[in-house]
Amino acid sequence: MNPSPRRTPTRALARATGAMAAAGMVGLLSAATPAWAVDPFFTVTFGPDQSTEATGVRAAATFSFVDAGSFVDMTVTLSNLTGTTPPPLISQPTASEFVALAFQLPSNISTVDLGAGANADLGYTPSNGSLFDIAVANAALPPFDSTAPRPPLTPYSLCITAGNGDGCTGGGNPGNGLNNATLASAAGTFRLSAADVSGALAFRQAFFNFYQPLIPPTGDPAYIGPIAARFKAIQPGGRSDKLLAGTIGGGGQAPGDEVPGPVPLLGAAAAFGTSRKLRRRIGAHTPTP
């Protein structure tokens, strides 16, 4: 019976070196997997710099996408950031209601008629307990409408609002809205389809590619923008305000993002090969016990 071979310190070191190199290569392979591939969402923010009245209100809207059979569901989550981050003004509103969000759809994407419910024709389902229970199509959101001195090219494709349609369609008293510092409130979900787009990430990217060049709004007319937020009951004074999106980011792969290339992987493979050579060399010069 042959005795089991003893592991010399040099051989143990070589094996440890090889194991670490292999682990390093696995780690690099994991790091090379793009995180955006499983992260189909983006967030837009609204602030005083993009408002008509500079009242100091702030907001955010997150659009997230999930596969739903042959369709994709887009859920809109809203935050009234007023009172959470001091704006660059002497004072900020003591109260406000975020009452409406209007946005354009990319031309190749449309909503799917759900066939039941008050918003079925627009493919919209309010979230459980959501204040944003009304969806409106072709919304002219003043002053970002066809009557403004510098209007958007067309009315907004869709608008969701709280309490009553006045948030999207005109003035009047506010319905229920998101109060100051109300964060991450799910508004509702749109079911979407497109003949030439498939999968949640692809839908996310289609929206991002459409919105990103126009946020913040540039060019003339200056008020062209793909997304707008509306506030009412801003205190003091009972004022109202409308804001275009000022930033966009998060989730997905933004245009121009770099995908990890092969150089780190080649380096890991070279390290692994070197460790094998080292083990062979040590084995050749280590006497067998």
Rank of each mutant, 00 (worst) to 15 (best):
Q104Y: 06
Q205P: 04
P260H: 00
D73Y: 08
G115L: 02
S198T: 14
F190S: 04
A95N: 11
D121N: 11
N80T: 05
P48T: 05
A61M: 06
T82I: 00
A32P: 02
R191K: 03
M74P: 07
P5D: 10
G117K: 08
M74N: 10
F65C: 09
T247H: 02
P93E: 09
T247N: 01
D257H: 05
A269P: 07
D39N: 11
L243M: 15
I215M: 07
K242G: 15
D166G: 15
V136N: 02
T82F: 00
A202C: 04
A270E: 01
G238Y: 06
L101Y: 03
A12T: 11
G27T: 12
A12Q: 15
L105T: 09
D241Q: 11
G56D: 08
T43A: 00
R7P: 10
A202L: 00
F190D: 06
S64Q: 07
S193L: 12
V44W: 00
P151D: 05
A22H: 07
D166M: 14
S70P: 11
I248K: 01
A60N: 06
T169F: 13
I248G: 00
P142L: 13
V76A: 11
T94S: 15
A68W: 04
A12N: 15
L131Y: 03
A181D: 10
V112D: 07
G172T: 08
T17R: 05
G251V: 11
R11D: 07
G123R: 02
M25Q: 15
F65I: 10
N108G: 10
P255T: 01
N119F: 02
F272N: 14
R280S: 14
P287C: 12
Q212V: 14
G165H: 14
P9I: 14
D73I: 15
A200S: 09
G172A: 05
A162N: 14
R276F: 12
G237K: 00
G115D: 01
F144E: 11
S127Y: 01
F41Q: 12
A32E: 08
Q205C: 03
P226Q: 07
G175H: 02
G170P: 04
P40A: 13
L178D: 05
L265F: 10
G225V: 08
G238V: 10
N128V: 07
R191E: 00
G163W: 09
F103P: 03
Y124Q: 05
I224V: 13
S51I: 12
Q104D: 11
P126F: 04
T77Y: 03
T85Q: 09
L158S: 09
A269R: 13
P174G: 06
F42N: 04
A228W: 03
A102G: 07
S127T: 09
I90G: 11
S130N: 02
S240C: 08
Q235M: 14
N108R: 00
M74I: 12
T147E: 10
